[in-house]
Each structure stands twice: as structure tokens, then as C-alpha cells.
């Protein structure tokens, strides 16, 4: 029963948000003075699709960069760079994405690219940190056994280290994707579209109904992705740990 509450609530909210026939009366009820209710320039569904595309692309890029850096920094040859990599990614997260966007537009132009850059810089840290944690906290006897039986460094990484660190890395990816979905609303500032469009338009035109539908839709998207990735993480978890 309890397990059904989430999906049911999610589906209901989706129906309200993405079917204009239902959304319109709801908005009229909530914001009687708005003047215009359902965002007219594009359907919320197509905006959500664009939003998802931006945030997932950024999430995947951040995951690849974060995992690669995390692996490199925990190899004997890369260990010297560990503090540098940590500092660089922390610094990247302190940069406000809106500022990065503003700085990047003159070089990358309007559209998808500057948004991607801002989001990736902002979301590498959780993946990197979790990759480092996952790889640094593996039980030493297990690694010694792996080396002692004659696995090469690559075999130890692929057969032992990564499978054991995967649940922790997965959590980092989930965090980064959820951050991205929220932050991707700034994409509208660079003309990349997405659910930021009704928010920005609503702010300019002083229309709370538009702000509301953009904010609600991106929040819903973040919650759904979070739940989805959490379920995927559970599957990644080694069977022995899952049952405990």
C-alpha cells in the first residue's frame, strides 16, 4: 500500500501538469488574477522533454568526467593529483551556474552548449567525491587477495574495485542528475528552452501561473528521476548486501 503512494501521486501530478485540459482549470482556480494561464508558447510536455535532454546529457557528461577523474586519482600514478582534482572540482561547484552561463555565452553563443558547460561544472563534484569515497574505502584484505592471486591492476579495477564501489558511485550520479534537473531551468536564460522558459517568461510578465507550472514540472521531474535512479541503484547493489 505504502509503496503505491509515490507512483500514484506522481502519475496524478503528471496528468494535471501535462494535460492542458486539466491544467487550465486548476491554474484558473489557483491564480484567478493571472490573465493568461497555460503557457502558450510551447506545450509543457515538449519543454519537459527538452529539459530532460539537457539535464541528462549534462548528468552523463559529469558522470563520465567524475568517474574517470576518480579512477585516475586513486591509481598509483595519479595519486599525486588527488588534492588538485579534489580542489578543482570543489571550486567548480562554488561557481554559480548562472554566472558561468553569463561568462560562457560570449564564447559559446546562445543555446545548448553554454548551459551544458554550466551544468557539468556544477555537477561533477558529487560523482567525483562518491567515486573517490567508493574506491578509497574498499576493504584492504580483499584488494590484497586480488593482487596476491595474480590479477593485473586493470583486472583488480574492473573485477573487484568498480563492482564494489558501484553502489556509492551510483548515489553520486543520482545526486548529480537531481541537481541538474533543478539547475537546468537557467537554460532558458541562454535560449536553450526547457522548463525554465515559463519561469523566466512568468517573472518578466509578472505571471505567477507560468512560474508555477515551470517550477512544479521541474520539481516533479527531479523527484521522478530520483526515484527511478534509486531503484536502479538497488539493482546494482551486490545481492549479498541487498538482503541484509
Amino acid at each position: 500500500m505504502k509503496r503505491l503512494i509515490g507512483p500514484v501521486l506522481g502519475l496524478a501530478s503528471m496528468a494535471v501538469l501535462f494535460i492542458p485540459g486539466i491544467l487550465d482549470p486548476v491554474l484558473r482556480f489557483l491564480f484567478p488574477g493571472a490573465g493568461e494561464w497555460v503557457f502558450p508558447r510551447a506545450s509543457l510536455l515538449s519543454l519537459a522533454a527538452m529539459h530532460l535532454l539537457i539535464s541528462l546529457t549534462a548528468g552523463a557528461t559529469a558522470a563520465v568526467i567524475g568517474i574517470t577523474l576518480g579512477i585516475a586519482a586513486t591509481r598509483p600514478a595519479g595519486r599525486a593529483f588527488l588534492p588538485l582534482i579534489r580542489d578543482a572540482s570543489s571550486l567548480a561547484q562554488t561557481l554559480p551556474p548562472a554566472a558561468v552561463l553569463a561568462l560562457a555565452i560570449p564564447f559559446l553563443g546562445f543555446g545548448f552548449e553554454p548551459v551544458l558547460l554550466a551544468l557539468v561544472l556544477y555537477s561533477v563534484l558529487p560523482v567525483l567525491n562518491n567515486t573517490l569515497t567508493g574506491l578509497e574505502t574498499l576493504p584492504e584484505p580483499v584488494l590484497e587477495a586480488a593482487r596476491g592471486m595474480g590479477m593485473s591492476r586493470l583486472q583488480v579495477l574492473m573485477r573487484v574495485e568498480l563492482p564494489l564501489a558501484l553502489p556509492v558511485i551510483g548515489t553520486g550520479i543520482r545526486t548529480s542528475v537531481v541537481i541538474n534537473v533543478g539547475t537546468a531551468t537557467i537554460g532558458a536564460l541562454a535560449g536553450a528552452g526547457g522548463l525554465g522558459s515559463p519561469i523566466v517568461a512568468g517573472l518578466i510578465r509578472d505571471n505567477p501561473a507560468w512560474v508555477f507550472q515551470g517550477a512544479m514540472a521541474s520539481a516533479l521531474l527531479a523527484l521522478m528521476l530520483n526515484a527511478l535512479l534509486k531503484a536502479a541503484e538497488k539493482r546494482l547493489q551486490p545481492a549479498n548486501m541487498r538482503e541484509v
Binding site: 576493504p139 584484505p141 580483499v142 584488494l143 590484497e144 587477495a145 586480488a146 573487484v160 563492482p163 564494489l164 551486490p238 549479498n240 548486501m241
Partner: peptide, 8 residues
């Protein structure tokens, strides 16, 4: 001593 079996 600590065996070091692969837990996964």
C-alpha cells in the same frame, strides 16, 4: 588471515 573473499 582476514581471508579477503570477494563480497560481491
Amino acid at each position: 588471515q582476514q581471508v579477503g573473499l570477494f563480497p560481491h
